[in-house]
Simulated scan of single mutants.
Amino acid sequence: MYRQGEIRVLALGLIRDGERIFLSEGYDPVKQQTFYRAMGGGVDFGETSRQALEREFQEEIQAELTNIHYLGCLENLFVFNGNPGHELIQLYQCDFVDRKFYELEQFTFAEGERQKTALWVDIERCKSGELRLVPEAFFDYLSAQL
């Protein structure tokens, strides 16, 4: 959770399967807007961003990752639920170890007290603007992976 004035460090995983990308769905109640973001989560004090990436996937969806490669850092300034946010995102390209994750279209998982949805999305739906991918700088890395 964000505290006012805090810069949060996240580790997110870019997982592609052909023309699909694996994303987590979010909703901003103030904007009444659904958005999509690569899965992952916060980096805890004393762990590397790669360790955080692997831990978050294990905790949230019990998935192991392989072929993990660092892509870069994104800085994201945003407003969510009416509050300003600031995050530094360590972005990794990776794959699932277990092939079952490529066969599932979508599933729900718990993130703290909240129920969230993870799903495969056709990349064109994000590029066309039909689905809102955040942060927008994510497209720079997505395009490089084509």
Results as ranks from 00 to 15, higher is better:
18 G>C: 05
97 V>S: 03
45 F>S: 10
50 R>N: 10
98 D>R: 01
111 E>G: 07
75 E>T: 11
119 L>I: 02
110 A>N: 11
24 S>C: 14
121 V>N: 05
15 I>C: 03
90 Q>G: 06
34 T>D: 11
67 N>I: 02
48 T>E: 09
44 D>E: 12
37 R>E: 14
141 Y>V: 10
134 V>G: 05
64 E>P: 02
55 R>K: 12
14 L>H: 00
28 D>P: 13
15 I>E: 00
144 A>I: 11
97 V>M: 02
57 F>N: 01
105 E>R: 14
78 F>I: 07
8 R>Q: 12
73 C>D: 09
80 F>D: 08
54 E>D: 07
133 L>E: 01
66 T>G: 02
140 D>F: 12
126 C>M: 15
34 T>H: 14
52 A>G: 08
121 V>Y: 02
119 L>M: 14
36 Y>F: 14
27 Y>D: 08
116 K>E: 12
2 Y>C: 06
123 I>A: 08
94 C>E: 00
121 V>A: 06
53 L>N: 04
42 G>R: 15
66 T>H: 06
112 G>H: 06
71 L>F: 09
89 I>L: 09
144 A>N: 10
66 T>C: 11
41 G>P: 10
57 F>I: 01
107 F>V: 00
8 R>K: 15
92 Y>D: 01
137 A>H: 12
35 F>Y: 15
84 P>S: 09
55 R>L: 09
121 V>L: 10
41 G>Y: 05
129 G>D: 07
80 F>T: 10
39 M>W: 00
6 E>Q: 15
100 K>V: 06
96 F>R: 00
122 D>N: 11
51 Q>M: 11
119 L>G: 07
83 N>Y: 09
1 M>P: 08
17 D>G: 03
95 D>P: 03
70 Y>I: 06
110 A>E: 05
72 G>C: 09
144 A>R: 15
112 G>M: 09
88 L>F: 07
40 G>N: 04
132 R>N: 14
